[in-house]
């Protein structure tokens, strides 16, 4: 059954990472909850990781893999800071829905 699917090429991975990226993007756009937005940003970063690995695999040089580690490190730092901010806002506003902090406008 597996062989009928045929060879999984570079494009498949690119499509996958693009799809994940778009899902993450819509997550940021649509969802109202701050934490879910954080998660969707993480999703976008991981989508990029997939494309890095795919490119590195099909050009058989190792740069891609190294970049993945950098990206993951940065994603972790972002997540930490993001959550800290979300907690601080929750403590102050008692509200996690981003509709509530629109004081800065005009």
């Amino acid at each position: 059954m597996l062989s009928s699917i045929g060879e999984i090429g570079l494009n498949h991975y690119l499509i996958l990472s693009a799809a994940l990226f778009c899902i993450g993007m819509f997550g940021v756009l649509m969802r109202k909850n701050a934490l879910v937005i954080l998660m969707s940003i993480e999703l976008m970063l991981n989508a990029v990781n997939i494309s890095f690995v795919a490119f590195s695999r099909y050009q058989n040089n190792l740069d891609g893999f190294v970049m993945v580690f950098f990206v993951m490190a940065v994603a972790a730092a972002e997540a930490a800071v993001g959550l800290a901010l979300a907690v601080a806002i929750f403590k102050r506003f008692r509200e996690i829905n981003i509709r509530f902090f629109e004081h800065l406008k005009g």
Binding site: V28, L29, I98, L104
Partner: peptide
């Protein structure tokens, strides 16, 4: 221009995308 800046986070993200 002021109207476009309505303070909503997701509105800004929409502009970018």
């Amino acid at each position: 221009v002021r109207m476009t800046q309505n303070g909503n986070l997701q509105r800004y993200a929409l502009y970018i995308l």
